[in-house]
Amino acid sequence: PESADLRALAKHMFESYNKAFPITKAKSRAIMAGKTGDKSPFVIYDMNSLKAGEERIKFKQTPLQEQNTEVEIRIFQRCQFRSVEAVREITEFAKSIPGFINLDLNDQVTLLKYGVHEVIFSMLASLMNKDGLLIAAGQGFMTREFLKSLRKPFCDIMEPKFEFAMKFNGLGLNDCDIAIFIAVVILSGDRPGLINVKPIEELQDSILQALALQLKISHPDSPQLFAKLLQKMTDLRQIVTEHVQLLHTIRKTEAEMSLHPLLQEIYKDLY
């Protein structure tokens, strides 16, 4: 019966994940392999294709003063809009974790404040391959080389995420594995300022058991996968720390840049 409970928990997290996140790894891989029957993504690999892509791709939000803004700032603003959207999706997912909404409300805020970027970078890996990443819900594909060719400091934003993604994708996780993993990440009992750690650790413990069983069943040939995946949590913290430092630099040096209020809240006093 205990393992039946853990399987039910895994199934529940997978269903919430599919409900909360519009693009899954399976969908992203199908788009990249051209197996969806839709148009293939528009490839952005230089300034001309960027311009053509901006006309062709239907973006969810069109930031104001777009035309006259520098390319790097435009790309960065779109990243911000997508991040804000992702925070909303992750919040919705977190609320579906059994017991999460019964935690102290301050602790819910803390868990999201520290967890959302680790979740964003875990899930971003699903949209990436070694050559680039899917953008705008799979309508576009921006190459890694193009992102590297942007002026400093913007060229430094995505490269560490690609490096992490290549290692993370090497684990061969499926969407159900990822769903449970991000729930484990959110329920980290060692975030600074938590008031009531014990119930968080208890929730995380049952999700960890569900993850261990899930990996055993879906990857019977990789007995070390659970341990390897838990090690990735350390890498994620490192990436977020570097990301926050880079954003501080950008805010100091780029007068034109504005940071969305939700992201300001999250980054303030983070690390």
Binding site: T91, E92, L105, V109, L112, K113, L262, I266
Partner: peptide
């Protein structure tokens, strides 16, 4: 903490509320 994280707090209460994208 809630005061310093008004939007996050609002999303937790009602994730359909607008965040002024």
């Amino acid at each position: 903490l809630k005061e310093k994280h008004k939007i996050l707090h609002r999303l937790l209460q009602d994730s359909t509320s607008p965040v002024d994208l």
